Each structure stands twice: as structure tokens, then as C-alpha cells.
Simulated assay, not measured.
Amino acid sequence: MLEYKGYKLVETDCDIEKQIMDLIQNNNGSIFHEPKLNKIVSRKFNTDLYYLVDNQESIKYASVVHATKNGLGLKRYHFKPLGDIPYAGFIGDNIYDFKNFKVGFYEGISYVGFPYGIDCKANVRFGETSMVDLLLDEDYIFNNILHSKRRNMIRKAILNKIVIEKFYSIEGLEKLWPILEVLHKKLGYDDLDFDYYEAILSAYFNEHKAFVLIAKKDGEILSGIIVLGNMNYMHYYKGASKEGVINEGQGELLQWEAIREAKNLGSRFYDLCNLNKTRLPGIYKFKTGISDQIYKYPIYSYSSVMYKVINRLTQIK
């Protein structure tokens, strides 16, 4: 069983969910921490959903945990939603000591924390993302945060009559899905189907915590993005472009309109959601051209000795 200091793993109920939502609101949490989203993910990936909390009666510190168990009896605790959601971990920018984690004989941990940019008391790796501070004036963001090349591409898109359509309904996903599905097949994301994204977006459209932007020219859909978030962070969650189309700045214009919409909704940050300079240098350059304000997030993994042994023997076979 997972142990961390005196914390407890608890299943969700109405009281726990209310406390978690209050914690998210008051401690700079993300939609990726929310019980509603994690329930959808749990159903999709057949996980046991918990929150690791300090005090069940009055929660001050908490992390979402998805527990999985394979056919060999190996159990793993994932401190983020499974699938293509990039991070979660503990809510709030507190310092956590991962050396205090303990697991059972046949268990392991996979932790990907939120990009609060804090140090950790453990030997962990760090991932990166970039964000736009939405408290800044819109003109300042355009003229000082966006790289000059990205500004020029936005102007090019407008000059070339690229039109951005905004959707707070499943119609937006229906328009984007043919392009996104092609990308998913290339990446091997066959299990991330239309129904999964429909479930997520339908849960948040009416709350204005999710929207879809579609870039079109002369009636043809060129590309689109899905943005998901809350008052603390709006995340650039998904994006895809039609194969073979000319780059006329539609990608930059989509990001600019997403920033403007997130700001209009009153969110604090716009998160470009994950950077990988080594594996995806082109995307890294594009995203850091939107904002070069880098935030780090911790990545920690631990497995018991028996977990490693059994896992290795399985791979040898």
C-alpha cells in the first residue's frame, strides 16, 4: 500500500470532491486535478481513483492518484490522469520530499507533478512547459511576449484571410476530429477515441472551461486546437493540422485567439502544455515563440525490487 508521511488514500465522495475543488480554487490548482475530469479518465483506463490527502476531515494537501494493476499482480500508483494529460501531482506550490514515499512489495510509483516551478527534495528529473501571464495587458502580450516572427505570422494569417471559428459545443470537436484522428493514428493513440474527448469536453463546455478553435480558409478546415482549463490555468490541450496545407500563420493565429479567449474568461495563465527540445525541436521553437517563460515540473519514478525483477523477467520472455 502507498504511504507518504501520515497521508491517506481516500476514494471520492461528495465531501471529498468539494474539499478538492476548494483546494484547487484557493491553491492555484488545475483542471487536471479535478475529480470530474479524473473520473472520466478512470472509467476510460479502468483505474482505481483516489486522492492522497493529509487530513480527510480538513484537506490542506492533496494529489490525485490512479492505481493500476497488471495481470502479474504488479500495482502502480500514477500521480496524474492517464492518457495524454501531461501532469497533475499535488495541488499547490508546496515542496514535497519524494524520498518519503513508500510502496508495497509488488508496487511502484509514477509521479508527474504540476509545473509550479518549485524545487523538490529528491533526485528527480524535470520536464518543461511555457506559459503566458494573462494579467498582462493584451497589447503588451502581443508586442513583448510573442516573438516577432510569431507576430508576423499572425499578421500574415489575417492578411491571407484565415478565419478562426470558436466553439463551446461538441460541434467544434466534430469539425476537428477528422484531422486529429489522422494524427492519433500516426502516434499510435488508437485508444484515445472520439467518445473519450466528447466525454471530457461535454463535461466542461457549459462551464466555459473548454473550447475548440478551428482555422479555416475559403471554407476549408486547416487546423484546430482544444483548450481546457479553469480560472487558474487554461491549457493548450490538443492540436492538429491538415496534412499538406500551406503554413500561412494559422497555427500562430489559433494560439493568439486562444490567449485572448483565455484572458477574456478571466484565467490567470495560458499554458502551452509541455516542451521537449530534444525530441520535438520544431514544436519547442513554435511554443517558446509564443512565450519563452519556462516553468519546470518534477518527474519521479520508483519501483520496489520485486516489481523490477518481475517486470524484467517478463520483458526477457
Rank of each mutant, 00 (worst) to 15 (best):
Y236T: 04
C14G: 12
H33Y: 06
L228N: 03
Q255I: 07
S304M: 11
L136M: 14
F205E: 00
Q250I: 06
Y106L: 15
Q56M: 08
I164L: 02
N100T: 09
G71E: 06
R312F: 09
K8R: 15
I259T: 05
I226S: 00
L228K: 04
V41P: 02
D139E: 12
I221G: 00
L213G: 03
F211K: 01
S148M: 09
K39D: 04
Y284N: 14
Y295E: 06
I170N: 14
K69A: 03
L146A: 08
D22T: 09
K18V: 10
N143I: 06
L254I: 14
Y50V: 10
K277V: 15
T288I: 07
L2G: 05
P281S: 13
N311P: 05
Y116I: 08
E138G: 03
G127H: 07
I24F: 03
L74T: 14
K18W: 04
K5G: 05
Y300C: 10
L2P: 04
L52K: 10
A67P: 04
Y87I: 09
V305T: 13
F167L: 05
D271N: 15
Y140N: 12
K60L: 05
T278H: 01
R312C: 06
K69R: 15
K287L: 06
I316N: 02
N70K: 13
Y61A: 06
N70Y: 02
S267Y: 00
K308F: 02
A199T: 08
Q293K: 15
